[in-house]
């Protein structure tokens, strides 16, 4: 039943493997000794040799790659150059903050987008539909980090309705801290999803099973909300799954703007300190996140759409 999903997952793993290898080789291909860059020009030769050995950089490249794969399979992403802590630990400590933010963003934007799109499809070519369409296009165009900055300026600095920095403590405080960044990330998705749902809803409403449902006198509400919408939202799941990379990118900026802990903040901080193992680890985890979310979207689609379970 799940052979399609497993094949997709296999392909995803292959992509992940290629991505990791490319990443690894890219880091090694950079001109200049990474150790020297990391330690700065004033480091002693002993210290440099020590770090080179610690990072395994004295080995030939293919061996480094093999060791890297081996460690990776054991969930070991290396060690932080400065603190000596495991990169895996550091990354997974930050990951929940990012996931929380992405989840909140998708939750509000998908709910609103689906509602808007379904409404527009039920009243096509009315004034409200046109206004919704214009707003959708404008929202799609708004880059998350600019929205984040403007939201920070207006709602946190000037109106002081919401906190400006951090992730908060305790459920309500955390939720309070989520509002502005999730708003900024989700805004462009509202318009995007609304347009998607409108188009797919109009298509589904024209299919003959909808005519059948109506011919049996099933209430129009139920026809729209159950018979048509359940099919019309299927592409939304796929789009969100594939859009995970985009969401992550937005999250990076939102984390910087609102000084929230998370993967984005971690990466930026490690880039400024040239902490390559952490950069590598975060990029890897976020790539994996993307691959997993695409596979997850396939699975959810299979759950929602019985045809997808046996198709392919």
């Amino acid at each position: 039943m799940l052979s399609f999903a497993t094949r997709r997952f296999g392909l995803s793993l292959l992509i992940l493997f290629v991505a990791v290898t490319v990443m690894f080789l890219m880091i090694r291909a950079v001109p200049g000794d990474p150790v020297q860059i990391m330690l700065g020009p004033r480091a002693t030769p002993e210290l440099q040799a020590q770090l080179t050995a610690a990072l395994g950089l004295d080995q030939p490249i293919w061996k480094q790659l093999l060791i890297f794969y081996g460690n990776l399979l054991q969930g070991d992403l290396g060690t932080d150059v400065f603190s000596g802590r495991s990169v895996t630990d550091i990354v997974f400590q930050q990951l929940p903050f990012t996931l929380e933010l992405i989840f909140a963003s998708i939750l509000w934007s998908a709910s609103l987008g689906i509602a808007l799109g379904a409404y527009a499809a039920a009243h096509p070519n009315t004034l409200i539909d046109r206004i919704a369409a214009a707003i959708s296009v404008s929202f799609v165009a708004a880059p998350a980090f600019v929205v984040a900055l403007l939201a920070l300026l207006v709602f946190a600095v000037h109106l002081q309705w919401f906190p400006a920095i951090g992730a908060g403590e305790g459920f309500w405080d955390r939720l309070d801290h989520l509002v502005l960044p999730a708003f900024a990330i989700g805004l462009s998705w509202v318009g995007y999803i609304a347009r998607l749902v409108r188009a797919s809803m109009l298509e589904v409403m024209g299919e003959s099973h909808v005519r059948t449902a109506r011919a049996f006198g099933i209430a129009e509400r139920r026809v729209v909300m159950v018979y048509a919408l359940r099919i019309a939202i299927l592409p939304v799941v796929t789009v969100i799954g594939v859009g995970m990379g985009f969401l992550l990118s937005s999250a990076v900026f939102a984390e910087i703007v609102f000084a929230r802990p998370g993967l984005g903040k971690l990466v930026i901080d490690s880039i400024t300190t040239r902490n390559y193992p952490i950069v590598m680890g975060s990029v890897l985890i976020s790539t994996a996140l993307f691959v997993v979310s695409t596979a997850l979207a396939d699975l959810i689609n299979a759950l929602l759409d019985p045809r997808a379970r046996t198709a392919h």
């Binding site: 992509i15 992940l16 890219m26 880091i27 985009f246």
Partner: peptide, 23 residues
């Protein structure tokens, strides 16, 4: 296609950050 999918699977900003960090 594998090449395209691989590039696409790097979250754009993460990829950008990694490259900028390197070069």
């Amino acid at each position: 296609m594998l090449f395209f999918d691989t590039i696409r699977s790097f979250p754009t900003v993460m990829f950008a950050l990694a490259v900028v960090a390197l070069i």
